[in-house]
Design a protein around this nucleic acid. Sequence first.
DNA 1: TCCTGAATTCGAAACGTTTCGAGACCAGAC
DNA 2: GTCTGGTCTCGAAACGTTTCGAATTCAGGA
Lengths: 361, 361
Amino acid sequence: MARTRRPTMADVAAHAGVSVSTVSLVFSGAGSVTADTRAKVENAAAALDYAGPSPQARALRSGRTGIVGVVVHERLARSLRDPLQLRILDAVVEELGERGLGVLLLPSPTPTGSERPLLESAAMDAAVVLRVRDHDEPSLEILRRRGLPHVAMEAPPGSVATRVSIDDTSATEELIRRLLDLGHKRIATVTLPMTDRATTRFRTLDDLPDPMWTPARHRLEAFARAGVEPCAIVEAGASMVEPGIEAGRMLLAHNSAPTAVVCQSDLLAGGVIVAAREAGLDVPRDLSVTGFDGLDLPWLAPLALTTQAQDGESKGRAIAAAVKELLDGGTPGEIDIPLELREGTTIAPPRPETLRPAHLR
Amino acid sequence: MARTRRPTMADVAAHAGVSVSTVSLVFSGAGSVTADTRAKVENAAAALDYAGPSPQARALRSGRTGIVGVVVHERLARSLRDPLQLRILDAVVEELGERGLGVLLLPSPTPTGSERPLLESAAMDAAVVLRVRDHDEPSLEILRRRGLPHVAMEAPPGSVATRVSIDDTSATEELIRRLLDLGHKRIATVTLPMTDRATTRFRTLDDLPDPMWTPARHRLEAFARAGVEPCAIVEAGASMVEPGIEAGRMLLAHNSAPTAVVCQSDLLAGGVIVAAREAGLDVPRDLSVTGFDGLDLPWLAPLALTTQAQDGESKGRAIAAAVKELLDGGTPGEIDIPLELREGTTIAPPRPETLRPAHLR
DNA sequence: TCCTGAATTCGAAACGTTTCGAGACCAGAC
DNA sequence: GTCTGGTCTCGAAACGTTTCGAATTCAGGA
């Protein structure tokens, strides 16, 4: 089979005995075309094995590519191993797909990365930034330069025109107050990664990185709002179970172990619970644990995590809706996705000091 | 700020006092340009806030879009909740990204789907099909029509020019033989979903769907190769823990419960183990369980799954390498990714009949 | 019979690049 | 002083559509 040139609209037009404009009309479905003419064109297309108008040419002429870029963590798996993020992306893909829009995965540009990041050079009509560092996110500047409309999730207030966010500070504060009401005094926290290349480690309030991932910062600020200081802060290397276990071990080995741990994600909380079990502690009697996100963690049974649940699907749909509105020339502004405190079985009043396992007093 | 037209290469050329071709040369980095001229052009571009050549125009003229489509399950999350798939996709994105290629997510076209699926209309240079149903996969036909080079993972032999696959039949056979050698007679199996919209249910060898997802079929065929028939077959609704639990419950409630379960994925195996624990059974003494994929399941501790491990990262890299070779005009052919039997602690000889819990005899 | 207006179809002009071949210029060899 | 070869720059021709306004056709009313 000779590797021949693909047929173009001109070929189809010639074969059908009509003009190129008419063929275009048939394929775009826009103008009015006689059933007769339409049939001629369709037959010609079939005869030539014409696969439809070239997307490249269509994009150049019409100015629309039908592609929406989605900026994720440079290591894709870092972003998507989190089931919540996946749900969000899934909803975005589905919702945009209904309008014929495709999603292009864009690893977040890094200073050390390639000369010309995809975000700068790829064709697209709009973009979604799923992961915004604190104010200096370079993606936002690139998008501005290119004049591309964009939506950012969990971005710092004022950093971008269209935001879709949750009020994670208030939600975390609510969890902290629960623990305070139960009588807890020594409350530790396990945070999300604060930077792109985080490792699991102790932090103090004086030792926080400056461009800091927004959700980590917001959820940490809840302590100040609740008027307490965490007795220990461990930054997790990733929002996954393994780093959660590690963080839990670190906290329990600490000189004065906490009676409660506020975890910035459910996966981290799950890890902390595994570490507690490992140390022979009973959750929640020896240690109260809270999560964030509201995932299903069936392997945690019979415990159910006390957490703030967010609905990934509606978050994704809200993002997609905002993108569509931008493409239609609208200005969606700021969108707030509600959280719901889900009562689980992982918090309880602290055990009287004298009854705690000796090594934890 | 007046919403003004974006500057083009012609504007930059005029501002710099050179020709359009020269500006193009500067941006493409190809031809030889005096340092002086280059500086003039770069200054002009900066002055006009020119964001670089239009990807649309570049794509039309050069014929290359820099985009590789990746066909995933229609419900994105179905594909990507599986950590292995995610690793593969991650490696593909990273490896292609190094060459400046972006990954466009393409939900698999469904009969009921939109009029014109993205796979038919989106701009791209090549495609990867991560999920091939048995022979009649519609994606492959569309790609052929469009004349796009493509790579398919786990496709039936002969269905496509470039395949990247594992020998899952042999690997599963190896696991089955282990169990036979240990003395097992009643071996059940929990399969991957066989169709796009599967539910967790019993199946028999006479009752298999015809277009059937290839890995499910291959791994099931291992029983015939090993010369035994599974004593029960449960098709899982998805390759996740929850359907695995459900499948495990169904098998254990069966009149003559198995002494071993061959699960077509680690997540399903994890679920079966949870169901066994729930029923008061000891794994592996009361029930042997094998998995497939080689994931890390920290919550399974202290057990370690006996499984066939595949390296998602090298699989992804192999796929990306094949795509690059296709784009360079090569013909990569068939690529086989090796599997490695990982000895865990979840299989043992069956307990003598008389010692088994009464309800399981 | 002639005129009006709606329904179709058509021609031509973009859209913003890349690429090809040719021209201009300059230094060094004869 | 002329010729040769290399380096840099340029003009013009695509790439394959969409879209705009104009041309054509045809039916129905005056």
